[in-house]
């Protein structure tokens, strides 16, 4: 049973048995790791509040031969991201980001860049920046890092450079990028995209993280671009993220309007 030590962030958790917890971590050196934390639900557990969602810590775990699940030995808090958990809007967008990450990444597939992106996103959610923008920037970069980057510079079929003047294009998820209006197949697996949104997405890709968080965008354009990323995430995951359903319900009940993600 080899012992591993790495930095990790808690991206999911569920009750297991009488007092244990099944915790999903995204670790810097190991990628997604699912492990059992024995007795973690007891009030005097040695894990304390360390296994709460978004907590970054030093993870010590044993690989077990009989199961894919690791045995969590300890998780010492490095940064709790408590303020993200204690604000409903930040929690909703942070949860959306970790759900997408958890569902799109395979177990034990290390991706330090993705780990760094997750930390940057959680840190952004702690600042006064708008939570939807932080989640949006996360999604835009995460799909690239996971190898699902969509081609936006020209039509995939005829090669016409984008944006296509006054005409809109269609983002074809199966084809893996943008197609111009004449080339778009009716009913294809994708979403319509205005020229402005194509330009906006390309611009946000090239900006640094801090610049992308601060970039001023017309609200309607931001909603359109966020909708595209939400659709791409749903396509990649195979269903609409659960956190999206939660957000829709919470907004309806609180009478808040807003775009996705």
């Amino acid at each position: 049973m080899p012992l591993r030590k790495t930095q990790a962030v808690v991206i999911g958790r569920m009750a297991l048995g009488e007092s244990d917890r099944l915790v999903t971590f995204y670790a810097r050196d190991c990628g997604k790791v699912r492990g059992v934390a024995k007795g973690a639900r007891r009030p005097r557990s040695r894990f304390g509040s360390g296994l709460e969602l978004f907590t970054q810590g030093q993870l010590l775990f044993f690989e077990t031969e009989r199961s894919d699940l690791a045995r969590v030995d300890s998780f010492d808090i490095l940064h709790s991201f408590q303020s993200v958990r204690e604000n409903l809007e930040r929690l909703m967008y942070g949860s959306w980001a970790v759900e997408c990450l958890g569902r799109l990444s395979a177990d034990r597939d290390p991706n330090p860049a993705l780990y760094g992106l997750l930390l940057r996103t959680l840190k952004a959610l702690e600042t006064p920046c708008r939570p939807p923008r932080a989640a949006f920037c996360f999604a835009l970069r995460a799909v690239d890092l996971l190898g699902h980057r969509l081609r936006l510079d020209r039509c995939l079929k005829c090669g016409t450079p984008s944006p296509f003047g006054s005409k809109s294009g269609r983002l074809d998820f199966t084809a893996g990028g943008l197609v111009c209006e004449p080339c778009a197949t009716y009913g294809s697996d994708g979403v319509d995209l205005s020229g402005l949104a194509v330009g906006g997405l390309r611009r946000l890709r090239t900006l640094s993280w801090d610049e992308a968080l601060r970039a001023v965008l017309p609200p309607a354009l931001e909603v359109e671009m966020a909708g595209v990323l939400e659709a791409q995430m749903a396509r990649l995951i195979g269903q609409v993220p659960r956190t999206t359903r939660f957000r829709t319900q919470a907004r309806r009940a609180l009478g808040v309007n807003g775009g996705s993600p």
Binding site: L91, S95, E99, R242, T243, F246, Q249, A250, A253
Partner: peptide, 10 residues
């Protein structure tokens, strides 16, 4: 309420 499980107010 559980965002990750999709359990909302309704």
């Amino acid at each position: 309420l559980s965002p990750l499980d999709g359990i909302g107010p309704e």
